[in-house]
Design a protein around this nucleic acid. Structure first.
Length: 213
DNA sequence: AGGACGATTCTCT
DNA sequence: GAGAATCGTCCTT
């Protein structure tokens, strides 16, 4: 595990590894969001790995397109996508360039900036729900597609960057099936979370959409 | 704490 | 035109 000094973003080499190594290592790391609104900080508590073109659950499974272009680029950059007509989700591109793998940031604890987050997450009854789920996390931190492709290893003045944090005790790291992934990609236990953390999202099995008439 | 269901628009076939 | 790496509301326990 690489250990740069505090307040320095994670080095490119951190992301330039197989995605199944990077994903659990991101637990406990710090996501920084800077905007005119101020500085926000999130401690990552839940992630999912998506293993590029070989992974039926990955957006890269059917090859390179305009949407997933960033996934095929260098590691350590943000892949932000829009889904379900309303939401954004944030990933960190991993692995050697061209592997098109990434880690979906699914949940975390807002360490700094809870007031700003509450303005965007009015329905959250408790602070632990502010970033409980990937689209909630993106909403809380005001992440949208304008941040797609952002270098997460850039200096700390970047609008979005990833920094080391306090790694959880290895006994607290759990893994299981990915949420919301169906078909052939469903069985991979590539969701990682910090056991017992109140900000970890509830597991939801993939639900095929029914006809709407 | 958890199940059912509608919302809303982008992406790719 | 179908389906989506989801969420909020409403309901029951």
């Amino acid at each position: 595990m690489i250990e740069p000094s505090d307040r320095t973003p994670l080095p490119r080499a951190f992301f330039d590894r197989p995605v199944l190594e990077v994903a659990p290592d991101l637990l406990g790391c710090t996501l920084i969001r800077r905007s005119d609104d101020g500085v926000m900080e999130l401690r990552i508590t839940e992630v999912e790995a998506y293993a590029g073109e070989l992974d039926p659950g990955s957006h890269a499974f059917r090859g390179r397109t305009a949407r997933n272009d960033v996934m095929f680029g260098p590691p350590g950059h943000a892949y932000v996508y829009f889904t379900y007509g309303m939401w954004h989700c944030l990933n960190a591109v991993c692995g050697p360039e061209g592997r098109a793998s990434g880690v979906l940031l699914r949940a975390g604890e807002i360490v700094l900036g809870a007031e700003q987050a509450r303005k965007r997450r009015v329905s959250a009854r408790y602070d632990r729900e502010l970033a409980k789920g990937p689209a909630r996390l993106a909403t809380a931190l005001d992440v949208d597609r304008t941040l797609n492709g952002t270098d997460l290893c850039a200096d700390a003045m970047s609008p979005l960057s990833l920094l080391p944090g306090t790694a959880p005790d290895p006994d607290q790291v759990r893994n299981g099936p990915r949420t919301g992934v169906g078909g052939d990609g469903a069985h991979h236990p590539w969701r990682f979370w910090i056991d017992g953390d109140p900000t970890v999202s509830a597991y939801r099995a993939h639900a095929p959409r029914r006809r709407t008439t």
